Computed example of a mutant assay.
Amino acid sequence: MSNQEENINLPLVHKGKVRNVYDFNGNYLIVASDRISAFDWVIPTLIPNKGKVLHKLSMFWFDFVKDIVPNHIITGNFEEFPAELKKYEYLRDRSMIVKKANRVDIECIIRGYLAGSGWKEYQKSKTVCGIKLPDGLQESSKLPQPIFTPSSKEENGKHDENISFEETVKRTGKDTAEKLQELSISLYKKVADYALTKGIILADTKLEFGFYDGHLILIDEIFTPDSSRFWEVEKYAQGVSQDSLDKQYVRDYLEKIKWDKSSPAPELPKDIVEKTLEKYTDAYEKLTGRKF
């Protein structure tokens, strides 16, 4: 933790790879740190201000999709925070007070294009997470329609694992599984259509939901460079991996230096840190039309 995080005198409920969740007056305070993770490891090097990009972009999207599904936000505006939180200047533009939802332990992944682990699987079996896809697709090809490919949400350093829709039904019940699928695809389509008008392809994304007052609501962060692949339309080409505005840049660097992914992650050099922040900021500015 950075010193500023250590100074926050509230009960820490959960320390995630990037976010810290604190108990606050019957709600949660979620703080986006400047940590970055790759291949399920937290990198020891911070990306300065990255947490602010994640926070501001999430707030933009929560507002944008609120007609599709309610969310957990009470406020993400530091000026509206109670006095006891305002003494922590670190929280400004990187934290939100949210309702305590009962999290559904499924990561809702929606893919509109063939990339990453999906592409690897397709080459072997013409499937992604067991879903049969047409022959002849290439790396980065657009899929005939977006597909819902959930994964398990594991704790204690275990790797999240892709699971079938049938397994999701087993874990959540049929009604919840169908609702997760329907909401995830609706959210993906709305944001992907909008992103295209800004010259950005939303290749895939990960969403999380929870129950609050008996209803499914959207939680965590949404449509950020940490949870999505963003490609620029003008640079897009089928058949190759894309230069993306997200943390793929860090993953590519770690692949290039042949890190084994089973021992603690190495520090990132200064140029990789700067370029990563530049990509995150670029995604924010292009998608929102606002200066960071």
Rank of each mutant, 00 (worst) to 15 (best):
T288I: 14
K17Q: 12
N20F: 13
G51N: 07
R92V: 11
D213Y: 02
L202I: 12
S140Q: 01
V169P: 00
G199T: 11
F62C: 06
Y253N: 09
Y249A: 05
W119G: 01
D243P: 01
I8C: 06
I106V: 15
F62W: 09
Y212M: 08
D175V: 15
N20V: 11
T197A: 05
R92C: 09
D260N: 13
G199V: 14
K190M: 12
S152N: 10
S117H: 06
K17D: 10
T127N: 14
E274I: 12
Y28G: 00
I147V: 13
Y122G: 08
E167N: 14
W41Q: 10
N25K: 13
Y88I: 13
Y212S: 10
P266L: 05
V250I: 15
L187R: 03
E208D: 06
G51I: 14
G173M: 14
F230Q: 00
S95Y: 01
K99R: 08
V42P: 04
K235Y: 07
G76E: 00
Q248P: 02
I30S: 01
D243L: 01
V98Q: 02
Y113N: 00
F292M: 06
N3C: 11
M59H: 05
S125R: 15
R103M: 14
K52I: 08
G130C: 10
H72V: 09
R290A: 10
